[in-house]
Design a protein around this nucleic acid. Structure first.
Lengths: 146, 146
DNA sequence: CTCAATGCAAACTATTTGCATTCGA
DNA sequence: TCGAATGCAAATAGTTTGCATTGAG
């Protein structure tokens, strides 16, 4: 988290932005969680302790975080854009439980390699990818079988 | 295409739907193309020969096709839901050129297998997945290097 | 004749933007 | 002081829905 803040500050400085208490709070709340927040969700969470903050401010901050490379935009097809902190570590993809909404992150280097092979076959240069597996998580399966 | 029409007719019958010239035209146009249409695009295409057709009719038909299992909804993150004919053959994923918008379909059974392994590791049951590789297609790369 | 389908306009939802005001540097 | 940031409200854009009318069975 410390590192992400540093990266963001550097980026903000480069862009000539000013630091504000609102954005600091949004950044702290965003980084201090493992969640995959939609703007709405993060807005509501922050609002609890800070009722004066505006939705647009949260939205603009999240967009800015993505621009500065400390957040990734996600779209799990539920009509909400989500954001997750992009930590220094390796890329990961997601298992999305369509029953309870929980998210499991996974990495599979072999899949990444195969992707590259597929792309190479078509002379295609990959910039980014989306890979999401939708289904029912272990927890929900257990509950259903009770 | 013949087979998809049969599947759809069977589904429509089951649902107690009536057949109309509009829906027949939408179905024919939709199946008779390899494109990945958004509602808007298909609407505009059909409109050229049939100016009376309404956007909502096209939209409802596409949703219905998806329900009946002859179309898949796609979302390439450009804000438009797209639909592609789901032919009897095997599942495929997509390479999406962010420069020209072209779509290349690919299949890679090994990736599918690895997905299953990943899911199994978490006791997760996959119902469907999304896998899209975004980047620059060979054609655009060639143009850019001129 | 009955009820699904259509076409239009209006409603929705999430996102983005305009602008007057506030506030950091 | 200057200009970025904020908060509100309004604008957008894509999708969905309500409803009067049309038309298939």
């Amino acid at each position: 988290m410390r590192e992400e803040i540093a990266i963001f500050n550097e980026c903000a400085k480069r862009k000539g932005l000013k630091s504000t208490s609102q954005r600091a709070l949004i950044l702290k709340t965003f980084l201090g969680s493992t969640s995959h927040y939609s703007t709405e969700e993060l807005y509501l969470k922050i609002r609890k302790n800070n009722p004066k903050i505006g939705y647009a401010t949260v939205h603009r901050a999240l967009k800015l975080f993505a621009e500065c490379g400390i957040a990734t935009e996600l779209d799990f097809g539920d009509g909400q854009t989500r954001f997750e902190p992009l930590r220094g570590d390796q890329h990961h993809d997601h298992l999305v439980c369509t029953s309870c909404g929980s998210i499991i992150e996974f990495t599979e280097p072999k899949i990444e390699e195969l992707q590259e092979l597929v792309a190479a076959k078509y002379g295609f240069k990959i910039n980014r990818h989306r890979h999401e597996l939708y289904g029912i998580c272990a927890n929900c399966t257990a509950i259903a079988s009770n």
